[in-house]
């Protein structure tokens, strides 16, 4: 058998396995606040912004409250970084992180704003 098929096949198999493993381990599911509290692994959380939050200069942490519109459940979010510039305008916030010691430790915040850019067309 031509070694090129062996090498090619090997590349395909190794990377397929490798991709499957990293796909599963880096998958961050969208969950509700209730689920996030139960799971404790890295998840994406979308909720309504409940307050303006507070930034601590000393620790460089930003904290705020996130709420679930359907269930009314709330969660305390701690983000390692400053308050996002458009936070006060946001209706919803997507947080990526994990629930630990009574708070959701977010590594990423995605602020969802009602922006004009998305309102084009019918809703001017």
């Amino acid at each position: 058998m031509n070694p090129k098929y062996i090498v090619g096949g090997l590349i395909i198999v190794v990377f397929t396995v490798w991709a499957a493993v990293s796909f599963n381990s880096s998958l961050t599911p969208y969950v509700s606040i209730k689920e996030a509290k139960e799971r404790g692994d890295v998840v994406q959380l979308k909720g309504a912004r409940l307050d303006q939050g507070a930034f601590n200069i000393q620790t460089n942490m930003f904290t705020f409250q996130l709420g679930d519109e359907a269930s009314g459940e709330q969660i305390h979010v701690i983000y390692d970084g400053p308050k996002p510039g458009n936070f006060d305008q946001a209706t919803h916030v997507v947080c990526v992180g994990r629930y630990e010691d009574g708070a959701f430790h977010a590594t990423d915040l995605l602020v969802k704003c009602p922006s004009k850019y998305q309102e084009e067309g019918t809703k001017i």
Partner: peptide, 12 residues
Amino acid sequence: ASNVSINYYNSL
């Protein structure tokens, strides 16, 4: 629906 993080791409 879930999204993969950047780690997935970088590790590949």
